[in-house]
Design a protein around this nucleic acid. Structure first.
Length: 865
RNA sequence: GCCUCGGUGGCGGAAUUGGUAGACGCGCACGACUCAAAAUCGUGUUCCGAAAGGGGUGAGGGUUCGAUUCCCUCCCGAGGCACCA
């Protein structure tokens, strides 16, 4: 028997050797082409890693080793995203300073990563809580402030009573609870810093098209940004006020039979107070005030529940004028109109909007259709042919003397009459047509186009041209609105970057001069939240009190800190130049390394990936970076579940620790197994049994020298070159499962047929990125340098071709047997071979061959009459 | 409701993108080695059938010499968005 595979000994030995030789050191501005391969850096929690965490790191490790072996200068760094609530909550619970907790957790994480044999260049390690790092996070904030993109706001924001801090919209779950602690989030008016991410919405949307990202992530970002195009139109109220509404359907303006304001709309507040320009007053002030209050107190969750019945109150005594036809229409307030979207006011067109329809039905408001459905000639013709059962108008059609125009007109009229009987379908259709989604369901499936009616001079126009013309007539403006909200950027917590601002009574908010950065986080006795909506920093008088950088009078430091997502919004740039104290990243280094070529991680489809893109675009605008996007290619990672199919969690007691696996079967085995489990993006349950397969594979590789011979059969050579091709392509494409499978297939062949020394060494190189330790050990006997610094094998197209192939033989499309021939054989040769095969020939003789389909090297199909 | 992915043996999955469905691995069965077990090696393993043969990639239709792959209708699962005008 061959020598045993002593994984512990081998792995420890090589990990130390690699560190001593510093073989993974990255060189800036090298002559070689570059590859920047990045993992989403981890949040070093107190729990440590489970076997699922390193999956992405294994993938980038393989990819970066492969890139190094194919001649690239590789940047594959690692760091720590260590600010934020979990670290702070952990610290509070365990009664230690967050810094201490972070240090401890980082050490633990690093230890766990190191036993897996990763090729990180630890010279470039970064930590977002390091003052030398967050100096630049603060610097970016100041640049945003100077460009007017960071501002103070007093609007009500999401307040989490559990975490005692304000949150951004992105930090909420779909049901309106806090994603950290699941508390029900409240609306609370308070001062906060906000970043104008909305100004970048259009560019973030458009540039998605330039990215090699999974479609579902692009789609999630599009949904989150939620752009919709439409018009703003002004309505005059009888009070003398003007209200601007936003609509995506300006073409339906003549059908606007009432108007709705959000209960929070400023004009509603003024009406309740009795302040109007011309003294026309609200007659049911009490009722309106009560409804507005009720809505304000309602939890966000309840308000978003669209299954409940529409509610609202009419503003008695107040009317609006429809600017299209001058008609007086009633005005309501209702909570189905949201203050935070569009202008907080709508024109309601019940005939062509589902929600307005529901509301109008309940409040008995006029429903006026302004669209007429039309039928194209081709669908009329098709319908006439089909004699559609539901719409069988054959009686009206004289078959001998069929007149399509007449038929079409009569059918169109019938369908429009049906629509009048079923206004709701039309309302649903109208909503769907107006929405930002372009795929439509059509509840009136037979009508395929629409023109205006009941709209004076616009009658007969298409909705598109009518929309434009109507906007022009009433003095409206084309605009777009977005679902994405500006980024609430301040947190009332301790463990984050201090916002580098000084408040001065004379000068207002003044940025800390750049040469004074970083504003370091002071030591405090008590870093628990104060509970009064103030950050714990506010209690440290000697830190808070300072002088105004502008006028030198007394000033007070901003005591809010930045959210967890600040440090991670630009960290990839710091890896390019981690020790630079003069600039965030030097021009030369940025030019060489940017952008990130492959970014690997899971989750974070909207938050981190939206925030980082926003900051990157801003940094592009101020000349810090040279690319419009930070992450050119994104590979999404599927998680590993526990063997019971649930998420790995302390709570379920099903956590598998990588340290235990490494001890048991070795890091190489774990790496191979995790890559072999299935497609990289799939979420798959861990299987301890499956692990055995990976270990067996490496055991057999370890013993493969026994099968080395002086010459090898042709099949081995062909298989080797096929395997080089497959493994190279699969690593490039992140299809690691099939790469491993290809290596297994070669191993089967090599054991069966034998292989030369040369082929053996080539094969070891193929495995090296996957199993760096054992391959290094096996490489030792060559006496050369580290296998990881050698060149990756290159396949030969000519040698990757089989001499003979087995192809399927079909008769009349049914598989009837197979023949073995040269892949270059002609059709005649193939038929000849078939006729030599007794059982196949029997099925063919006595019949006429009608046709033969022969696909070289694949299949032959013989059609008999 | 809308959008984006998916649905293939007992299990994870493969299929050169329209060309022998089930590669590779796990599991299982049988055999060899062993006093025995483990490990290892060998053989087999989609379903029905003794076999010949037939069925089969969520369901049903269609296009094609040929469909897991393309088209239509529907069912189920995962994720994103959602009273967004």
């Amino acid at each position: 028997m061959h020598k045993r595979f002593e994984h512990q000994e081998i792995e420890t030995k090589w990990q130390q050797q690699w560190r001593t030789d510093d073989i993974y050191k990255t060189t800036d501005n090298s002559e070689k082409p570059k590859a920047f391969v990045l993992d989403m850096f981890p949040y070093p929690s107190g729990e440590g890693l489970h076997v699922g965490h390193p999956k992405g790191y294994i993938a980038t490790d393989i990819y970066s080793r492969y890139k190094r072996m194919t001649g690239y200068e590789v940047l594959h760094p690692m760091g720590w995203d260590a600010f934020g609530l979990p670290a702070e909550n952990y610290a509070i619970k365990n009664k230690v300073h967050p810094r201490v907790a972070v240090e401890k957790n980082v050490a633990r994480f690093k230890e766990q990563l190191e036993v897996l044999g990763f090729d990180y260049d630890w010279n470039r390690e970064i930590n977002t809580t390091d003052p030398a790092y967050y100096k630049w996070t603060q610097w970016i904030f100041i640049q945003l402030f100077k460009k007017g993109l960071a501002y103070e706001s007093y609007e009500p924001i999401n307040w989490c009573p559990g975490c005692q801090t304000g949150l951004a919209n992105e930090d909420l779950e779909a049901d309106g609870t806090c994603e950290r602690c699941n508390s029900v989030v409240e609306k609370k008016p308070m001062r906060q810093w906000v970043l104008k991410i909305r100004e970048y919405a259009d560019r973030m949307l458009a540039d998605l098209d330039t990215l090699e990202w999974p479609e579902h992530i692009k789609e999630a970002q599009r949904n989150w940004i939620g752009r919709s195009e439409g018009a703003e139109i002004d309505f005059k109220l009888s009070t003398g006020d003007t209200v601007t509404v936003f609509t995506t359907r300006p073409d339906t303006l003549f059908g606007a039979t009432y108007m709705v304001l959000a209960p929070e709309h400023p004009i509603v507040t003024e009406l309740i107070r009795g302040q109007t320009p011309n003294g026309v007053n609200l007659q049911n002030r009490g009722e309106v005030e009560e409804y507005a209050k009720e809505v304000a107190n309602k939890k966000e969750m309840d308000r978003l529940d669209d299954t409940k019945e529409k509610t609202g109150v009419k503003l008695e005594g107040v009317t609006a004028t429809n600017p299209a036809n001058g008609e007086e229409i009633p005005v309501y307030i209702a909570d189905y109109v949201l203050a935070g979207y569009g202008t907080g006011a709508i024109m309601a067109v019940p005939a062509h909007d589902e929600r307005d329809f529901e509301f109008a039905k309940k409040f008995k408001i006029e429903i006026k259709r302004v669209l007429h459905g039309t039928l194209s000639e081709s669908s009329a013709y098709e319908l006439a042919n089909q004699r559609n059962e539901e719409f069988d108008y054959s009686a009206e059609v004289d078959d001998k003397n069929f007149n399509l125009t007449k038929y079409r007109t009569s059918l169109e009229k019938t369908l429009n009459d049906k629509w009048d009987e079923d206004l709701e379908s039309g309302a649903i259709l109208g909503r769907v047509l107006g929405g930002s989604n372009n795929k439509t369901i059509n509840p009136l499936p037979l009508l395929d186009n629409f023109i205006l009616k009941n709209s004076n001079e616009f009658d007969g126009m298409s909705p598109k041209e009518a929309g434009k013309a109507i906007i022009e007539k009433v003095g409206g403006r084309m605009t777009a609105t977005y679902k994405i909200k500006d980024w609430v950027f301040s947190r009332q917590r301790y463990w984050g970057e201090p916002i580098p601002i000084v408040h001065c009574e004379q000068c207002g908010a003044v940025p800390v001069p750049e040469e004074q950065l970083p504003v370091t986080l002071p030591e405090v006795e008590n870093y628990e939240p104060a509970g009064d909506g103030q950050s714990p920093l506010s209690t440290i008088e000697e830190w808070v009190n300072t002088t105004c950088p502008k006028c030198s009078r007394a000033g007070r430091r901003e005591t809010n800190t930045m959210p967890q997502w600040a440090g991670s919004s630009w960290y990839y740039l710091r890896y390019m130049d981690p020790k630079n104290s003069e600039t965030l990243v030097s021009k030369e280094n940025e030019k060489y390394w940017a952008p990130v070529d492959v970014y690997v991680g899971g989750d974070h489809a909207v938050r981190h990936l939206i925030y980082a893109r926003f900051w990157h675009k801003f940094l592009y605008d101020i000349g810090v970076v040279s690319t419009i996007e930070p992450f050119q290619r994104l590979e999404f990672l599927g998680f590993i579940l526990a063997e019971d199919g649930r998420k790995m969690s302390k709570r379920w007691g099903n956590v598998i620790n990588p340290d235990d696996i490494v001890k048991l079967v070795g890091a190489d085995t774990m790496r191979i197994y995790e890559m072999f489990m299935g497609p990289f993006e799939n979420t798959i349950a861990w299987s301890q049994d499956g692990l055995v397969g990976a270990r067996r594979f490496l055991e057999r590789v370890n013993g493969l020298t026994e099968h080395i011979t002086d010459t090898e059969p042709k099949e081995t050579t062909v298989q080797l070159h096929k395997t080089i091709k497959k493994v190279s392509e699969d690593i490039e494409g992140f299809k690691f499962n099939t790469a491993v499978s290809a290596m297994m297939i070669f191993l089967n062949q090599a054991e069966k047929g034998g292989l030369t020394k040369e082929s053996y060494l080539t094969f070891i190189k193929l495995i090296a990125p996957f199993a760096p330790h054992i391959t290094e050990e096996l490489w030792l006997e060559t006496g050369g340098s580290s296998i990881h610094l050698t060149n990756f094998p290159v396949y030969s197209e000519a040698l990757a071709k089989d001499e003979l192939v087995t192809i399927g033989v079909q008769i009349n499309g049914k598989m009837r047997g197979e023949i073995t021939i040269s892949p270059e054989a002609t059709e005649e040769e193939a038929v000849e071979t078939i006729m030599k095969n007794g059982s196949l020939a029997d099925k063919i003789t006595d019949h006429n061959i009608k046709k033969i389909i022969y696909v070289n090297g694949r299949i032959i199909n013989i059609i008999l009459t």
